[in-house]
Design a protein around this nucleic acid. Structure first.
Lengths: 145, 145
DNA sequence: CCAGCACTTTAGAACAATTCTAAGATGTTG
DNA sequence: CAACATCTTAGAATTGTTCTAAAGTGCTGG
């Protein structure tokens, strides 16, 4: 039997509390509620608005400002990653590992590109004085017409 | 001696007028002024704000709203391409060919990745019902520290 | 050559996503 | 459990962008 603790471990309150504390964040009611929604069995892509609505739907009582705060704190703590594919809203991804995305432009939906089979060749080395922080591939999809 | 007309041909008024008309856009004073700034000898990355400031600097008299309108019309006509690398502002690229970008996060600057040596392997085929509209690679750079 | 109409421009209002502010609430520690 | 630092939040503020509607301009047909 495997112990919990993988990157996508499901999130019981104990785990979350520990994780939050490890990140220097007090385990408040709001952060725990959001953590439970985010760090479930599968990876997720949310926006502040979508997560807030979801939280309200399950009876959590918190403001949109708190959702924004929390998403940024989680990101700072390495629990989330920001993904920019649309100028209008910011997505947050619970998968913080190295991976890429499909973006369904019509629906504004994001999906991880499965597997890490993707390789990128022929990239020039970074200009002097700089270093690569990340290489992001976005495959923009549209409905087949 | 080569004739003009390449994708990055420098933009004299005659060329521009023709190009605009071909795109179904009346060659107005404002569009010509912006076209001259954009379609010069080298490719460029601008934002509405940066282009507006530049236009004002060279004495063109036009509003920010017109810059937004024009950038979108040019994009619709295939003269520009939008690049999304930052949630806060939209970049427009005069290079409409297949290519990728460096993004200097610290300075908010974009640069084309030279050459088209870049190849991406291992991408899954697009989910059924969809087709790939574009594959974008963004190499995020930070100052080496 | 110009009347007339469609297409453009524009100032300013409107908007949407996000951040800020500052005051009250809550978790933690001794 | 007192006391203080940390959090949350309502609402205002900001920012980039789009909209509106009224005035301006390019183009055509006669």
């Amino acid at each position: 039997m495997r112990s919990t603790g993988s990157r996508t471990a499901s999130a019981n309150k104990v785990d979350l509390t520990a994780r939050l504390r490890a990140a220097g964040l007090r385990p408040t009611r709001q952060r725990i509620a959001l953590g439970k929604l985010l760090f479930g069995p599968h990876d997720r892509h949310v926006t502040a608005e979508s997560l807030h609505q979801e939280a309200v739907k399950v009876g959590a009582h918190l403001s949109l400002a708190t959702v924004y705060n929390t998403l940024h704190q989680f990101t700072g703590a390495g629990l989330l990653r920001q993904v920019i594919v649309d100028g209008d809203k910011t997505y947050f991804d619970t998968n913080t590992g190295d991976h890429h995305h499909f973006y369904y432009e019509d629906e504004g939906l994001l999906a991880d590109i499965p597997g890490d089979h993707v390789t990128i060749d022929g990239l020039p080395r970074p200009p002097s004085g700089t270093e690569i922080e990340r290489v992001e591939v976005v495959v923009r999809l549209k409905a087949r017409g």
